[in-house]
Write a protein that binds this DNA or RNA. Sequence first.
DNA 1: GCGACAG
DNA 2: ATCTTGTCGC
Length: 272
Amino acid sequence: MDVVRPEFLPTAGLSREEMESMQRDIASAAEFTDRHSLDPASVALSETPTDRETADGSGAGTEQATFASGDADGPVVVGVDQAFRDDESVSAAVAIRDGDLVERAAGRAPLALPYIPGLLSFREGSAIVDALASLSVDPDLLVFDGSGRIHFRQAGLAAHLGVVFDTPAVGVAKNLLCGTPAESLDDPLPAGTRVAIEADDSMDAPDGTVVGYAVQTRQYPNPETRHVNPLYVSPGHRVSAASTADFVEATCTGYKLPAPTRLADRYADDLR
DNA sequence: GCGACAG
DNA sequence: ATCTTGTCGC
């Protein structure tokens, strides 16, 4: 796929002020409303991927592999995950369509920045751009590991890369970066529960704006003894908060994480 | 000044 | 994210 907004590429060597300034521009360019051709039902078809096996030559730079599959009808959902190896960041992108692994790609880039809450996309963005740019399929939806609109300046990793490629994107995080749950999340929630995450004074958005949802995709039979934490999902680009929760829920089916994310996770480990 | 903080 | 074995519960 191609970079559509090169002015927003996560460049190395920017000052903190420049990165934060760019994030405000990215937030302005991001669309937190539905503008895509997907419905939860079609996305749900991308759930039971026939895990074909690894066996890739490795090397520096990007690598890309294509897998033969059936017909080209359903939407292409791409899961993206990051891993580290020494001083370089590795990005893994896995494309799924109609439950089949269609293609996967890897990207690498040296780690220029330390981890700074709120600036994650500048630390791992280059490797992700590398991986996505080498994909030959055109994704209908990008599923990122990390926040989208749930971010101090409404420009989390999912929003940043969604805007760079002008492609529908959602962010899936295991922890909450900022914002306030509309209801307490202290007690275990039943599977299927979703609680709105509202903007608070630590964010740019008007107080109370629903910037995402805590989604309980899975839960154990007896949460009293052992429980699963919810996922924190938020719009990246061209997807509303409600649709984001719908898509994520549709791709989890019995697991805590979306299938595209699980596959990207596994591929990232293989690369590392 | 104090506290909070995706991966 | 990463460093790491066994262990508890379904």
